[in-house]
Nucleic acid binder design. Structure first.
Length: 817
RNA sequence: GCCGGGGUGGCGGAACGGUAGACGCGGCGGACUCAAAAUCCGCUGUCCGAGAGGGCGUGCGGGUUCGAUUCCCGCCCCCGGCACCA
């Protein structure tokens, strides 16, 4: 054996060499002209990472590798694949970390980005380093501010004082989406309510459209479902209950409620206002002001965790005020209770204790009457209610509507209410407007100037970007305003409209705005004079495939859809859905649970890559389990792919010139069929298994391979182990990168066809033998051969044969009895 | 509670309604070696049996079918998301 082949596969050397060659040759990078003129473009997107100080974690690498495999496959099929990467480096996460270690984020982030860049190169991603986006770079956030102004000009950005979620630890406002179970998603501190003037994007105007389009999207079902639920459309009616005094005379005030069951209005025996409801004061009887105000006060101070515990016992106080139920004409009491939320519907409800779980609990707690207005199949109007009845049936105790089936009662009662003028059908959404203000330092300043006479004025486009000043003291405080409000030299300016002395907006914007449009920026990242170039955008967008985690289902994916729709409506782009295909990958876990520092099961990737190489690590991650379901990381398992790639290397390097063996060639073509089917469907683990199986056949009995047998294997392994594939491709005598041409092997059905098949022989569905038959043997021949088997004979012996099932090429089943 | 996704050897995981456990890890045995590592070859669901072979096996209970991990009905458990949303 020659000296050099004894050395064998040295991943570090191979990978170092090819990463250098890719860089030198610009294998994965595009110039502006190349992007403009690209044929058959394929935009392969993955979620841009937040560049933490810890560096890339296994989850990042898993996600990026899975996406990269997809991109590399498309490229080997001949597509021109644009695969950009960037850094989402603004936000509380970076800022808090910077505070913790006492480094300015403007110093910290560049060093993190450098580290991430090194790691991303090291794992062999097919990234175009000419089109990197860094959200903290003024050349990027200039256009984030531009985007804000577009929404502002269109009336879709609005500043209003509103109760907001305030995290007392992070000292900032949080979007509803960032509050998890009443706690700050970042630090777990219970969130409080505050009233602060905030900027909102009116995403609710797009709620119906955002929901309607979901049906048409080729996205993972899980993601679509999560997003639909988040938008949370419900249909019902808005009903008006006049407030009345002791004599039943209307006071002029009206309590408006939203309900999904207007048909149960005859069973509404009391009303509930949320503690924040504006009518609380007007409705409350003078004699009850003290307890009512005490309750309202307590609710306001109560943190949202306690408020949102669904299983707690209901609390509330009577106001002494009354409404008239417009259906029954009866006078019903008005209560205040914190189980009614101001943020949803109208902040007031009609309580129907007989047919709503929460109202039932409340009525039970306070001894209020619980009449029945819906009777199930086994009930009549008088059947007592032991629990709220939510099922099907017909209306009872409901005046003229008695007997109406609940399937049509909502519609009928709503129509009646409309006719009488006290209600109408109404659609409600769970989705709220998007609060984008952050009273923090580390974000793009919102490009607005507040002028005493002109109000809020947008910064003119030629004055963008509004550069975030370097401020040494960027620690937030409890004042509710951004640290930028302490920098007078920065915020003092003049009104762009009238020239009067004015003050800059000192809030910065939510990071989700940064990441809400980055994919549009990527192909145009090298343009300084426009957010995105129309021609290039037309060529490359929308994104062909987006692969990312399901944690983005309701935040990033919803916001970026919204922003894209707005850009479409304003005439800036000609599509309204940003991602044709979205696939959610699974989660890598370790020892059966999510990796976390506290559990101490975090896998640090760098040493593994150093020991085994990026190709082995990539292949192992993709081999762990189905990509869309994730998998359990087991350190020992990496030996499998490691050995596989070594054997592949040895086999290819020592392959001879001879013709392919027909049996081996058959296996190779069967593998081509399988892998070609499975890679685009993200069936990575089974593709790798098929490649391993094929290599085992190529090497079976210690035979040495022919080049024609292994060349297709080299190409098919390339998406997973790109460096090794390049090296072997070169060894096979090819010039240039394997990814430069459509090198994916063609499947030839004739070469894959077997001429004999193994047929399972069953007796009463139990396997008793197998027979080998020619692939075009007749049924009679196969059945005869099956019957001739000794073991089959034994089981047929002495029994009545009732039926013979023959599945061509598969099995014969004798049914006896 | 609601909405997703799951439950298959010692482990990660494969299986168009048609031979359950591909591929890999680990384990056992062997080759090479003075020895070890690396590498290579063989075996490896479980029980009974010397063997041939047979029984049992895909969370549980039913059903459809010649045949069910796969389809249907009813449960249990795990993971993720939402949750006093009227």
């Amino acid at each position: 054996m020659a000296q050099e082949t004894q050395v064998g596969y040295v991943p570090a050397a191979v990978e170092e060499r090819w990463q250098r060659l890719w860089e030198e040759r610009g294998t994965n990078a595009f110039t502006r002209e190349e992007l403009r003129d690209a044929e058959d473009p394929f935009y392969n997107l993955m979620v841009l990472p937040y560049p933490s100080a810890e560096g890339l974690h296994v989850g990042n690498i898993y996600a990026f590798t899975g996406a990269d495999v997809h991109g590399r496959y498309q490229r080997l099929r001949g597509r021109t694949v644009f695969e950009p990467i960037g850094f989402d480096a603004f936000g509380i996460h970076s800022e808090n970390f910077a505070l913790k270690i006492g480094t300015h984020p403007m110093d910290l982030i560049p060093s993190n980005v450098r580290n991430f860049t090194r790691q991303l190169r090291r794992i062999g991603g097919m990234f175009d380093w000419n089109h990197v986006v860094d959200t903290t770079d003024p050349s990027y956030y200039k256009w984030t501010q531009w985007l804000f102004l577009k929404l502002f000009d269109a009336g879709l950005a609005e500043r209003k004082e509103a109760p907001v979620n305030w995290c007392p630890s992070c000292m900032t406002v949080l979007a509803n989406e960032q509050v998890i179970g009443g706690e700050c998603e970042r630090c777990g501190t219970p969130v409080e309510q505050r009233r602060i003037a905030q900027w909102f994007f009116k995403i609710t105007r797009y709620a119906q459209r955002l929901l309607d389009n979901i049906e048409e999207l080729d996205w993972s079902e899980t993601t679509k479902k999560a997003q639909s639920n988040w938008i949370g459309r419900s249909t019902g009616a808005q009903l008006r209950f006049p407030v009345v005094d002791e004599e039943g005379v209307e006071t002029g005030d009206v309590i408006e409620v939203y309900t999904t069951r207007p048909d149960t209005v005859f069973g509404a025996t009391y009303m509930v206002l949320s503690p924040e409801h504006p009518l609380v004061e007007a409705v409350t009887d003078d004699g009850l002001r003290a307890p009512v105000y005490a309750y309202v006060d307590k609710a306001a101070r109560k943190d949202l965790v306690a408020r949102q515990k669904a299983d707690k016992t209901k609390t509330g106080v009577p106001t002494g005020g009354y409404c008239r139920n417009p259906a029954t004409g009866e006078r019903i009491p008005v209560w205040v209770a914190d189980y009614v939320l101001m943020e949803y519907g109208t902040g007031a409800i009609m309580a129907v204790p007989g047919h709503d779980t929460r109202d039932f609990e409340f009525a039970t707690e306070f001894g209020l009457p619980i009449p029945r207005v819906v009777a199930g199949p086994d009930d009549d109007a008088e059947t007592p209610l032991e629990e709220p009845y939510l099922g099907p049936g017909r209306l009872v105790n409901s005046g003229d509507f008695d007997g109406t089936d609940v399937s049509e009662s909502v519609e009928k009662v709503t129509a009646w209410a409309a006719e009488q003028g006290w209600g109408e059908a109404k659609v409600n959404f769970r989705l709220h407007d998007w609060c984008i203000s952050r009273q923090r330092y580390w974000g793009p300043p919102i490009p607005i100037v507040h002028c005493a006479s002109c109000g809020p004025v947008g910064v003119p486009e030629d004055q963008l970007p509004v550069v975030l000043p370097r401020v040494e003291d960027f620690k937030p405080d409890d004042s509710g305003v951004s640290p930028l409000a302490r920098v007078e030299a920065w915020y003092r300016t003049e009104c762009p409209k009238c020239g009067a002395e004015a003050r800059r907006e000192t809030d910065v914007s939510d990071t989700f705005l940064d990441s809400g449009w980055y994919f549009i920026r990527y192909p145009s990242a090298d343009f300084d004079d426009r957010a995105f170039d129309p021609e290039i955008t037309k060529k490359w967008l929308p994104v062909d495939t987006y692969i990312g985690g399901n944690e983005h289902a309701v935040l990033h994916l919803l916001y970026s859809r919204f922003l894209t729709m707005v850009l479409k409506d304003l005439g800036h782009v000609d599509f309204e859905e940003p991602y044709d295909v979205f696939r959610a990958h699974g989660l890598i876990i370790a020892d059966g649970s999510k990796m976390s520092k506290s559990k101490g099961n975090v896998i640090v990737p760098d040493p593994i890559i150093e020991e085994y190489g990026a190709d082995t690590f990539r292949t192992y991650l993709m081999f762990l389990g189905p990509f869309e379901e994730g998998g359990d990381y087991r350190p020992a398992g990496i030996q499998g792919p490691f050995g596989f790639l070594h054997r592949l290397y040895d086999t290819v390097v020592s392959a001879g010139d001879g013709a392919a063996d027909p049996d081996v060639e058959r296996k190779v073509h069967q593998t081509i069929r399988q892998v070609t089917e499975q890679i685009p469907a993200l069936g990575y683990n089974t593709s790798i298994a098929a490649l391993m199986e094929c290599l085992n056949v190529v090497r079976s009995g210690g035979r040495s391979a022919a080049r024609a047998e292994v060349e297709p294997l080299v190409v098919m392994v390339a998406p997973f182990a790109p460096h090794l594939a390049e090296e072997l491709w070169e060894r096979l005598g090819h010039e240039g990168s394997i990814f430069d041409r459509a090198n994916w092997p063609d499947f030839d059905p004739a070469k894959a066809a077997e001429d004999t098949v193994e047929i399972a022989v069953q007796v009463n569905g139990k396997l008793r033998a197998t027979v080998v038959a020619s692939k075009d043997a007749s049924e009679a021949e196969v059945v005869a051969a099956a019957r001739a088997e000794e073991n089959v004979q034994r089981h047929l012996d002495g029994k009545q044969e009732r039926r013979v099932i023959h599945v061509p090429g598969r099995l014969v089943n004798f049914v006896v009895g």
